[in-house]
Design a protein around this nucleic acid. Structure first.
Lengths: 105, 105
DNA sequence: ATGTTATTTATGAAATTTCCTAATCAACGA
DNA sequence: TCGTTGATTAGGAAATTTCATAAATAACAT
């Protein structure tokens, strides 16, 4: 939780996550999209990895990174549960869905 | 966006948001729940306020803080759209809704 | 008016973050 | 084997964050 939010506090790291939303990329491909040196990107990647938000896999010469999507979703969800229980605008929808799924459930 | 995530990167600040989820509290009431001095809490509150996550209203001697829930929800949602477009478990649902709204659209 | 309570502002020390350059490690190809 | 490419590690400077203490501001009660 702490590590995830610390990881998300950095704009470059959020951008990396957004890039990886579409699929895996090598460290170099990622770095190429920033005006920042490769070592700096490498460091950002290790922060993201320590937070469990991405994983890197070495294939040959390259290291391919991809998102670990569940951890991000679960952490944000866990936080929202604490900080915004029963968000108002969604409550009605949720009630409707509940209603609609009475049969399926 | 940047300010919101920076604000969320701190455990005390996330705890403040969780406290305010249940309703407004005075600065002193908040401080009482931490092992931290009032000035430090005051500073955390101003970070949260600068991020648009809470607002303080002075009533008499006290300053009552409450959440600005929309900003938190909208920011997190905006980020999730970028970093996790079409989250798998929701995709099916979303497709169904798309289907259902073909007429209305 | 004066003292008390609630809160913030000012200031500064300690720790952390962010980014760079230089150097190292590892895999590939000639 | 050597040189090259992809990536990380090491080390350090600059900026930021976090927390504290001391002082200031503001509302309240006597």
């Amino acid at each position: 939780m702490q590590r995830v939010f610390e990881a998300l506090a950095s704009a470059p790291r959020r951008k990396i996550l957004a890039l990886l939303a579409h699929g895996e990329l090598s460290a170099g491909d990622i770095a190429a999209r920033f005006e920042m040196t490769k070592p700096s990107i490498s460091q950002h990647l290790s922060v993201l990895e320590a937070a469990g938000l991405v994983t890197g896999e070495k294939r040959g010469q390259f290291v391919f990174y991809r998102q670990v999507r569940d951890n991000l979703i679960n952490t944000l969800n866990g936080f929202v549960q604490e900080a915004c229980p029963v968000t108002r605008p969604l409550k009605r929808e949720s009630a409707e869905r509940q209603h609609a799924s009475d049969e399926t459930a």
